[in-house]
Every structure is written in structure tokens, then in C-alpha cells.
Amino acid sequence: MLTYQETKEKAEKRRELTQRIKAIIVERLNLDMDPNLITDDQPLFGRGLGLDSIDALELFVVIEDEFGVTIYDDNMEVFGSVNKLADYILENIEE
């Protein structure tokens, strides 16, 4: 059982990570929007954020550059949303 303090810290860390992911997406894909307007569960591709397969290639490279986490093309669902991306990064990041 986590204490209130621990839970709070964990939540804050998580928020930092999702903010960073959003900032990276907007910056590296040259999106003309405020990163804060992306919600954590908004789909990134198609109707969500409107990204396409060409952007996906860029995202693969960016995530690898920034977090040292490699995503393989058989788990594209990682790009489902910022939350899913954050989960994947946390699971696979080298401590």
C-alpha cells in the first residue's frame, strides 16, 4: 500500500513524463498546436491527433533518441495514446 506522499510523487512523475512526450511530439513533428491541448488518452493517429504512418516512422526514431527505448513495428498499439506510450516507456526504460 502506497502512502499518500508516495502516490502523489508517483502521479507527479507520471505527469512529467506525459508532458514531456507531448512536448516532444509537437516539437519533432512540427505540429502547429499547444502540447497541453493533447489529452492523455486521445488517439494519436487517424481522427485523434491526425498523425500518419510517415509521422510514425519519425516517432519511432524520436522515442529511441529521447528515452533509449526501442519500439518494434509489431507493437504499433504503443502509439495508441500518450498514456500507452508512457506505459511502454516506463516498462522498458533502462534504469
Partner: peptide, 10 residues
């Protein structure tokens, strides 16, 4: 040639 994803490559 760098990273490839599906049929796309950087």
C-alpha cells in the same frame, strides 16, 4: 539507411 518501420525507412 537508418531505422525502418514497415515499408518506410529513414
Amino acid at each position: 539507411i537508418g531505422r525502418s518501420v514497415g515499408i518506410l525507412s529513414k
